[in-house]
């Protein structure tokens, strides 16, 4: 079931078109919204929240229309914005409890829940400190905590690892992965960082210049056409290639120990033929599997290498 359905959505800021005829279904689970800076990712999130009125098309989130049911949508969504945001003059626990009250939780429940969520986000020790004294990593965590406090069904994370050092980034990704798997929370992560998306998400939507460029499961996008196989040998074996050809394989590439070959059939059907070729050539096989391209290659293929977007890896 789709968490959000977007149909021919067009969003304009004055004469600038940020999203153009955008159509996509956002499935349940952890979904990455990938695109370079200025691609329209944040605009899509803000349209889903009802902050921006579309110039055309329609969108629904959890079955609610973004133009008619803004308030009900925000009841079931949590937003972690890209930029720093907090309520001035509040400690973390006051801030998160207040965010809960704004979502309709009674004061006592909001306070109890704030303590729980802050512990979960790793801010338990610092919860009585003023948010203005927090480090960048802590500010990212508190933004996640205020987005989670009311138990949203969909969490929108806008560049959640922005400004974080490598260790902080790892922690944040682990936290996002944890919340998005097996907790009943669907997550839509907007990012221009390929490894972040690959680490956390199962599904990806690629946006550039306000248009949908690719969409699908990450593992499907990484699959190569014709399902080639990667074979890794224990030692170099010059005769292995000839034996593979005798078994009906086409050798795509061979780099020392790494061979990429292709033949009709499933990997299960092809494995005995590879083993036969290896036996005949006297080669030892260390690894065997479906060949994959990197996510970056997949996206460059999706958006085109010429003048395509610059993703960060």
């Amino acid at each position: 079931m789709a968490v959000a359905q977007i149909r021919n959505l067009t969003v304009r800021y004055g004469s600038f078109t940020a999203l153009r005829d955008f159509t996509a279904d956002i499935p349940e689970g952890a979904v990455g919204l990938l695109g370079p800076n200025g691609a329209g990712k944040t605009t899509l999130l803000k349209t889903m929240l009802g902050f921006v009125k579309p110039a055309g098309g329609s969108a629904s989130v959890l079955g609610l229309d973004v133009q008619r049911d803004e308030r009900r949508i925000r009841q079931v969504i949590g937003l972690m914005p890209e930029q720093d945001c907090h309520i001035p003059g509040m400690s973390a626990v006051q801030f998160v409890a207040y965010a809960g009250e704004l979502a309709g939780m009674p004061s006592a429940q909001a306070l109890r829940r704030a303590h729980e969520v802050l512990e979960y986000c790793g801010l338990g020790e610092a919860r009585y400190r003023n948010v203005e004294t927090y480090s960048t990593g802590m500010k990212q965590r508190i933004k996640l905590a205020q987005a989670l406090v009311h138990g949203p069904k969909l969490l929108l994370l806008d560049e959640p690892t922005n400004g974080l050092d490598p260790a902080g980034r790892e922690d944040m990704l682990e936290l996002v992965r944890s919340v998005s798997h097996g907790k009943g929370v669907n997550v839509l992560i907007s990012s221009h960082l390929l490894p972040d998306i690959e680490r956390v998400c199962d599904y990806v939507i690629v946006v550039t210049t306000g248009q949908l460029r690719a969409t699908g499961r990450i593992e499907d996008l990484k699959k190569l056409e014709g399902q080639p196989l990667d074979i890794e040998l224990r030692e170099e074996c010059p005769g292995f290639g000839d034996r593979l050809i005798e078994e009906g394989f086409r050798v795509i590439s061979a780099k020392a120990l790494h061979w990429r070959v292709q033949a009709p059939g499933t990997p299960e059907e092809l494995l005995p033929r590879v083993m036969r070729a290896a036996g005949a050539a006297g080669a030892q096989i260390r690894g065997f599997g479906l060949a994959e391209r990197s996510l970056e290659e997949a996206f460059l293929a999706a958006v085109g290498p010429q003048g395509g977007p610059q993703f960060h890896v």
Partner: peptide
């Protein structure tokens, strides 16, 4: 004096308006 100004400075409006608050 600071009730809206400080919220604007701290981007708090994003927190308010991303909740079911009009």
């Amino acid at each position: 004096a600071g009730t809206i100004a400080n919220d604007t400075r701290a981007n708090a409006l994003l927190v308010y308006l991303s909740k079911p608050v009009t």
